[in-house]
Design a protein around this nucleic acid. Structure first.
Lengths: 206, 206
DNA sequence: TCGCTCCTGTACCGCCGGTAGGGTTTTCGA
DNA sequence: TCGAAAACCCTACCGGCGGTACAGGAGCGA
């Protein structure tokens, strides 16, 4: 029971790092069992096939992702009463967290799966879709709170505005990886932060 | 000569569609030769290995990508004298072009390769990096022109602002694919367009 | 007619995903 | 403490795939 969980976790750890570097197709099961110090039979005891590994990997990734967002934005809310200031602080904290990663963001599994769609069954694609929808709901809630207090200088759809957070993060990850500049991702988040600040700044200024 | 080029192009066409749907690892050479109606020997006559196929694919994709941006933004410049208005129009045209794709954007090869880095040699990674840097230079040039005329309401680094265009496009593609909502990508570009408009809007307004 | 481009055909190698099935140790609850 | 379930290991095998090797042939321009 306990031991099984641990081995399973170890496989997932190794697999996650490999998949984010080489994609699913580029990650072989034989390489995973070699690094985990397990046999092939042992692997297939835990996961029926590669698809089930992908599902477990994705679910764990999403869970962890949500936990991080929860922590950051609830801390921001504790420090700032105003919904706009709280959101802006959250973006700042997120940017700092990403800046502190020594090798940059390792990559997003949701994005990886997007570029692999045909290889996986509908269930995984649906998990992926739900993850993106959860992001939308999360940030939409924050923008709703902001709209209750502030009037934007430009009319924008709230869902699209909420999606912009995910867009900037996913796009920032891609750009960071392509450029081999880990700092790009946190920088892009701060640029987006400036845009949000601008959007809710009163039109008339002294 | 002529015939060879044609076959090569046909292989690349089939490969590009397959790679964007399943990634490189998920695309088998055997499947490519089956669809192209060629033999394995024929394939390896044109490409030494999968890595060379990837290189040819990437180079062709980037070339085509550049051509599209050239067309859109030069048309926008023809229609608008003002650099800001011209850029805003360009974003609009880009958004419309992407809206008209029946199945949404098929995916960006540069992003695909990012998530596959370890599978390819340094040369391909460098091509990828140069592509992202070319995007930066292109949009930086446009923002430089805008800064010559307008004063932004918030101080932002020009390179980071230029990168934001790529970020939004790449992120929009990922989100579009994850959500299975093709309209998200053009929508996100328009949200970004509003941000740019806001950034250069005079502080004082009637 | 020569030679080059552009292939086809055949045979083979080793890796990988996955299956099958038997055997062994570890763990934990009754 | 004992027994059963959990958590593996071992061996053998299959078919697909990336890639190699090499022989040969059709078409075509000089």
């Amino acid at each position: 029971m306990r031991k099984g969980e641990e081995t399973r976790t170890r496989i997932l750890d190794v697999a996650e790092a490999a998949v984010l570097q080489k994609g699913f197709g580029g990650t072989s099961i034989e390489e995973l069992i070699a690094e985990t110090g397990i046999t092939k039979s042992g692997f297939f005891y835990h996961f029926r096939d590669k698809n089930e590994l992908a599902k477990a990997l994705l679910n764990r990734y999403i869970e962890n992702d949500e936990r991080i967002y929860d922590e950051i934005f609830s801390r921001a809310r504790d420090l700032m009463d105003d919904p706009l200031q709280s959101f802006l602080l959250g973006l700042k904290l997120l940017s700092e967290l990403l800046s502190d990663l020594p090798n940059g963001h390792p990559g997003c599994l949701v994005a990886t799966i997007c570029y692999y769609e045909r290889l996986f069954d509908r269930e995984i694609q649906e998990i992926n879709r739900q993850a993106a929808l959860t992001w939308r709901r999360r940030f939409r809630g924050m923008f709703d709170d902001i709209f209750a207090v502030y009037t934007p200088r430009e009319h924008l759809d709230v869902d699209q505005l909420a999606d912009m957070v995910s867009t900037v993060i996913e796009g920032g990850i891609v750009l960071s990886k392509a450029l081999k500049e880990p700092q790009s991702l946190p920088d892009q988040i701060l640029v987006f932060r400036s845009f949000v600040k601008l959007l809710f700044q009163p039109a008339q200024r002294a």
